[in-house]
Amino acid sequence: MYTGTAVFDVLLPGDSRSLKAKRSYVRPIVAALRKFEVSAAEVGALDRHGRAEIGVAAVAADAGHVSEVLDSCERLIAGRPEIELLSVRRRLHGDED
């Protein structure tokens, strides 16, 4: 069994000056990520306007499948025109860890 995690640090548009506006950008992204059958949530920068950290976790029997799923999640976020992907932190854990 392999587990993989990714944390995406994103810059939100300038009009996200309130937490309500921030949620209006983050919620659709999290919902779209869940279509890849992963756990996804806003995990950091919770009180910062204009920034968000979105975490994703995936579990599979094959390390290659976990990597493919996380790659798909990264492409989805990077392809969103309303936000800018600043960085990605990824980890892969196997049975030996």
Rank of each mutant, 00 (worst) to 15 (best):
G4R: 13
H49S: 08
A45W: 01
G50L: 08
A52P: 01
V56G: 07
R75I: 02
L12S: 10
V43F: 02
D97W: 07
R34G: 14
V30E: 05
E68D: 15
R89K: 10
I29R: 06
I77R: 02
G4L: 11
E53N: 09
R34V: 07
A60H: 15
I29S: 10
D97Y: 11
H49L: 11
V88L: 10
G79D: 04
G14W: 00
D9Q: 04
L12M: 11
L70F: 09
D47P: 00
P28Q: 12
D9W: 01
E82I: 02
A57N: 05
L85Y: 02
D15G: 04
S87D: 12
R91I: 04
F8E: 02
I83R: 07
R27H: 13
A78P: 04
E68A: 15
L85H: 03
R75A: 15
R90I: 03
A31P: 10
R91G: 11
E96S: 13
V26P: 11
G55W: 04
P13T: 00
V10S: 01
L86N: 03
F36I: 05
V30A: 12
R51H: 00
A52D: 00
S72G: 06
E68L: 13
V59Y: 04
L11M: 10
T3E: 15
L19A: 08
S24V: 00
I54H: 06
V30H: 13
H65A: 14
T5C: 14
R80G: 00
M1G: 10
A41S: 15
A78F: 00
A40Y: 05
G44S: 07
A57E: 05
F36A: 09
K22S: 11
A78Y: 02
R17C: 09
V26H: 05
D47V: 04
R51V: 00
S39E: 14
G79H: 04
R17F: 06
P13M: 12
R89N: 09
E68V: 07
G64E: 14
G44T: 01
K22H: 08
T3M: 15
T3F: 15
H93F: 14
V56F: 08
P81T: 12
D95Q: 13
S67P: 00
D95M: 12
E37F: 06
V30P: 12
S18I: 00
R34S: 07
F8A: 00
V10G: 02
G64T: 02
A40T: 06
G64F: 05
L70N: 13
R17H: 13
L12T: 03
L12A: 10
L76F: 08
R51A: 00
D47K: 03
V10A: 03
F8V: 00
L76D: 00
A78W: 06
V10N: 06
V66T: 08
